[in-house]
């Protein structure tokens, strides 16, 4: 559905994107991950036909984003980073306007607007003025306008930024429901967001694509070893050697009074053995979990690897 090849963009002298290539299949949800200024917004703006690349090409639904910009814009729904709404309009009025601008048939406008109002949970505010809405509702109005013309491809730039946790969950749920019928490409700088909603992640840093995989593979592949955290109720004065002696344990580190971090190879799960050892010695097992790599760590890993 989306083919991007060797996309490069300069802003004057500054290189914003360098030779970025990727493809997105129909019905897929792909996450764009990277720190601010990495080139996420630039890529999305090019896909939406707002900017032209300096070199390279991008196709959406088979149409070239430069040569056939209007055709591309007909099949995409785009939510820019700053939710663009006319503050003096009412929600329903605004969605109706966006639907008509996007070429929804006059007879279908009403039912389409009603549908997105329902789906994005805007029923209570449909007759309110945009300027009076809370941040969460504004964001939902932004998603609603991107959906109103039933686009084949949805491009969402930071769709959950500035929302409270409940709203974040609702938006994520909504995005998940869209998969299948729609192809979704969204950007974020929050890792859990990607692992919860996306089937595939593209990590972008300083304008270059540095990794592309499923969220699970990404965090697994990047970890040379896994870390298991154990919290003990009655830690012995010298527990380290006992844990270290377990088969497969690479090292043990004391994080604080009763929290220990155990390094183990990624290919075997040592948690049953650790639990057994702790229970047998009567140290009182309070907690046992494997530690996930955070985006920060993945990032540092990827960047330092270069």
């Amino acid at each position: 559905m989306i083919q991007v090849s060797e996309l490069t963009k300069y802003y004057g002298e500054t290189l914003a994107l360098s030779q970025v290539s990727f493809t997105v299949q129909k019905g897929e949800i792909v996450g764009f991950l990277g720190p601010n200024g990495a080139g996420k917004t630039t890529t999305m703006r090019i896909l939406a036909g707002y900017l032209s690349p300096s070199s390279g090409s991008a196709k959406v639904g088979g149409y070239d984003v430069v040569e056939e910009s209007l055709e591309v814009r007909r099949i995409i729904g785009y939510l820019p980073e700053t939710v663009p709404i006319y503050s003096e309009m009412r929600v329903r009025e605004y969605l109706t306007y966006m639907a008509r601008i996007r070429g929804v048939d006059r007879k279908r406008v009403r039912s389409r607007v009603d549908d997105v109002i329902e789906r994005c949970g805007l029923r209570d505010v449909a007759d309110r003025i945009n300027g009076h809405l809370s941040k969460g509702y504004r964001q939902r109005v932004g998603v609603a306008q991107a959906l109103v013309h039933e686009p084949k491809v949805l491009i969402l730039d930071e769709p959950t930024i500035g929302l409270d946790p409940v709203q974040v969950r609702e938006i994520r749920q909504l995005i998940k429901e869209l998969a299948g019928d729609h192809t979704v490409i969204l950007s974020t700088h929050i890792l859990p967001e990607v692992s919860m909603t996306c089937q595939r992640v593209l990590i972008i840093h300083k304008g270059r694509l540095i990794a592309e995989d499923s969220p699970e593979n990404l965090s697994r592949g990047l970890m040379k070893s896994q870390r298991i955290l154990v919290r003990l109720q009655k830690p012995p004065s010298e527990p380290l050697s006992a844990l270290k002696n377990l088969d497969g344990v690479l090292s043990v580190e004391r994080r604080d009074d009763n929290l220990f971090a155990i390094e183990a190879p990624t290919d075997q799960d040592l948690r049953p053995q650790i639990a057994e050892a702790v229970v047998k010695r009567g140290w009182g097992l309070l907690e046992l979990r494997s530690e996930e790599l955070t985006l920060e760590e993945i990032f540092i890993n990827l960047v330092t690897k270069e």
Partner: peptide, 14 residues
């Protein structure tokens, strides 16, 4: 200023 220009120019509008 509102950012709506970006929306307008990414709609199928010349």
């Amino acid at each position: 200023r509102l950012g709506t220009l970006e929306l307008l120019l990414t709609s199928p509008v010349t």
